[in-house]
Design a binder for these strands. Structure first.
Length: 273
DNA sequence: CTTTTGACCTGACAGC
DNA sequence: TGCTGTCAGGTCAAAA
C-alpha cells in the first residue's frame, strides 16, 4: 500500500512500537530486489538499537544507534507487519527480531521494493539524490507549483507522479487530486491557469491529509492484528470506478491509459478545454 | 534536454 | 479444474 499516506501511516505505526528497541536477530531472503541489497547485512545490525524511524518520499528510513541506516521501499506490493507472532511467509525479505519479542517483517511478493543498509550518510545514496518536493511541506505552494509546471509540457497527471518533481503522489492520489481540483489529467502542465494551480495545491494537500487520517484510523488494528491497513478506499471519487456514476454529476467515470498507467476521471467535472 | 515505453516480478481474477 | 490474458498502489534505463 505504497503512496505517501500509506508509507507515512506505516512509519507512524513503527515509531509507536519500536523506538529504542534493540535488534537481537535479523534474517533476509537474499533475493534480488529493485536495487541490489547489501548481501548479509543482517549480521551488521544485530545488537544495535533503533533510534529513529522516518519517511523520505516513499522510503522508510530506520536509523540505528551507530548512525547507520536500514532503508526500505515498498514498491507496488510491499507490506510491513509488526507483531509478536507473525507466521513466516513466502515473500518475507527482512525480518527484524526485537528484544521485546516484537518482530518487524517486510514482505514483498513482486520484489519491486527495496531493502538496503548504509553506513554512510544516506544523502549519498542514489535513491535520495534526485527527489522532488514533499507535497505536504509548506514549500509546496501555488508559487512553487506554477513555476514548476511552466517548464513542462507533460500531461499534468504524469507530472504529478514524477518523483523527481513531487514525491509521494502515486496513481491513486494523482487521479483523486485532479478530480478534486476539476482538472483533466491529460492537460499539459504548462497550460494550467493560475486558478487551477491554486486549486490543485489545495486538492493535493486535502486528499493526502484525509487519506492519512483514514490510514491512521485503522493503524491500531493493523499493528495488533496484522490485518490490512487503510480505510481511504471507501472515499475514492474516481479511482477504480470506471463506468460508474460520478458522485458529483452522475456522468460515467472514464478510464484512459496515461504513461502506461490507468487513469480515472470524470469527463464532465474534469472537462478538457 | 524532456517525455514515453518497456522491463522488472508475483498473484488475483475473469473468461473460456 | 485448468489454462490464458489482463491488471495491479513504483521506479529506472532505454528509446523516441
Amino acid at each position: 500500500m505504497p503512496e505517501l499516506p500509506e508509507v507515512e501511516t506505516i512509519v507512524q505505526g513503527l515509531q509507536a512500537v519500536v523506538k529504542g528497541e534493540l535488534i537481537v536477530a535479523a534474517q533476509q531472503s537474499g533475493l534480488k530486489m529493485r536495487a541490489q541489497m547489501v548481501p548479509n547485512f543482517s549480521k551488521k545490525i544485530i545488537h544495535k538499537t533503533i533510534v529513529e524511524i522516518y519517511r523520505n518520499a516513499k522510503y522508510i528510513v530506520i536509523r540505528l544507534n551507530d548512525d547507520s541506516h536500514i532503508i526500505i521501499h515498498l514498491g507496488m506490493s510491499g507490506r510491513i507487519l509488526i507483531g509478536e507472532d507473525i507466521a513466516p511467509s513466502k515473500h518475507d525479505h527482512l525480518i527484524l527480531h526485537l528484544a521485546s519479542g516484537i518482530r518487524i517483517v517486510f514482505n514483498d511478493p513482486r520484489r519491486f521494493g527495496t531493502v538496503c543498509y548504509s553506513q554512510e550518510p544516506i544523502e549519498k545514496l542514489d535513491f535520495f539524490k534526485n527527489l522532488g518536493i514533499e507535497p505536504l511541506s509548506n514549500a509546496f505552494d501555488s508559487t512553487w507549483l506554477s513555476k514548476a509546471t511552466s517548464r513542462s509540457s507533460a500531461p499534468i497527471k504524469s507530472f504529478l507522479m514524477n518523483a523527481n518533481i513531487i514525491v509521494g503522489i502515486g496513481n491513486i492520489y494523482a487521479c483523486e487530486s485532479l478530480f478534486a481540483a476539476g482538472i483533466n489529467p491529460e492537460k499539459p502542465a504548462k497550460q494550467l491557469k493560475r486558478k487551477e494551480i491554486v486549486k490543485l495545491v489545495d486538492a493535493i494537500k486535502q486528499v493526502l491529509a484525509s487519506a492519512l487520517a483514514s490510514g491512521g484510523s485503522t493503524l491500531r488494528d493493523y499493528v495488533k492484528s496484522n490485518g490490512d491497513v487503510g480505510g481511504f478506499q471507501h472515499h475514492f471519487q474516481v479511482y477504480g470506478r470506471k463506468d460508474q456514476a460520478c458522485f458529483q454529476c452522475t456522468t460515467p467515470i472514464k478510464m484512459l491509459r496515461l504513461s502506461g498507467r490507468s487513469t480515472y476521471y470524470c469527463p464532465k467535472c474534469q472537462a478538457k478545454r
